[in-house]
């Protein structure tokens, strides 16, 4: 399968991340509602996974040998849509239709309305179980494809995540790489204040996962962690990626208010300038 989009140059990946951030901000401004903070915090991770690791074919979304990607934190839908458009699944012209009536770009990803979305998400805590099922199916078929799953840090308060964490290690699903977007904030405030989840590395290690904790905005660290996950045998891999909510837009960064608030036209202009100069 041709991998025309495969980017090996780190500088190009960083440029792609900037493009994706700008698309996300434009989409959210046009929509007037949606989740800014958690879409921006996971950009670098998702860009690295899609454009440097994954094998897929936008002309054949169900190509059996494709690597799978599940956005378990479905509220970061604008991130997924911007990436899928960049990857060639559909025209970026429709990105401005996010959240609008009759648009295939639903507020949270719907696998039946747009190609490239593997499963519908939005109700938190469910993606890793689906990833496990895919990984089991791939193993039954001796298919070497891999499954990536991005979860939010608040999301892992859901009990189902820990059921799935047990399953993945019980069945030795080394074809799974989960990433936790550890941006530290959830709707009601700091994650550690709402319902603490630390010590994260110890928890996942206790569930018999291979763990790595990295700076989730450092492209080199992300690529290194993904490569190590690739090589890990006999157990699933989790990358705990420390990130900043709304990363890339200084006046939104780390502010819990921007979990579910979108930029004004003025803020958009300012943000685009900042990203382009950054």
């Amino acid at each position: 399968m041709s991998q025309a989009w495969m980017i090996t140059d780190i500088e190009k990946l960083k440029e792609t991340a900037k493009e994706i951030r700008i698309e996300i901000l434009k989409m959210l401004t046009s929509a007037g509602s949606g989740h800014t903070g958690g879409s921006l915090s996971a950009v670098d991770i998702a860009v690295a996974i899609y454009f440097s690791k994954m094998r897929f074919n936008p002309d054949d979304p169900f190509w059996p040998d494709r690597d799978r990607f599940i956005l378990s934190k479905g509220h970061a839908a604008p991130l997924l849509y911007a990436i899928l458009a960049k990857a060639g699944y559909f025209s970026s012209d429709i990105l401005c239709d996010l959240r609008k009536m009759e648009s295939p770009l639903q507020g949270h990803p719907c696998c039946k309305s747009i190609p490239g979305v593997e499963v519908s998400t939005g109700s938190l805590g469910q993606g890793l179980s689906v990833a496990n099922g895919m990984a089991l199916g791939l193993k039954l078929d001796n298919n070497p494809a891999r499954v990536y799953c991005i979860m939010g840090d608040g999301e892992i308060q859901e009990g189902q995540v820990w059921e799935a964490a047990m399953t993945a290690s019980h069945y030795g699903l080394d074809n799974i790489c989960a990433v936790i977007d550890r941006n530290g904030l959830q709707i009601d405030g700091p994650v550690e204040k709402v319902m603490g989840i630390e010590p994260l590395t110890d928890k996942w290690a206790a569930f018999r996962w291979h763990t790595q904790r990295i700076d989730g905005h450092d492209m080199e660290s992300i690529l290194g962690a993904l490569a190590e996950a690739d090589k890990t045998r006999g157990k699933p891999s989790v990358i705990i990626a420390d990130t900043v909510k709304s990363k890339g837009v200084s006046f939104f960064e780390g502010k819990v208010e921007y979990h579910g608030v979108t930029p004004s036209n003025e803020e958009l202009e300012k943000a685009i300038k900042e990203i382009n100069n950054g």
Binding site: S129, G133, A164
Partner: peptide
């Protein structure tokens, strides 16, 4: 045994896993 998955006492995970298996072409 290779096509049977005991999920333990974890129904929510069982359903999600079944969906994933279906998405990889199995009939769970």
């Amino acid at each position: 045994p290779e096509r049977f998955f005991n999920m333990g006492i974890a129904e929510q995970d069982m359903i999600g896993t079944a969906a994933g298996l279906a998405l990889s072409g199995k009939v769970p």
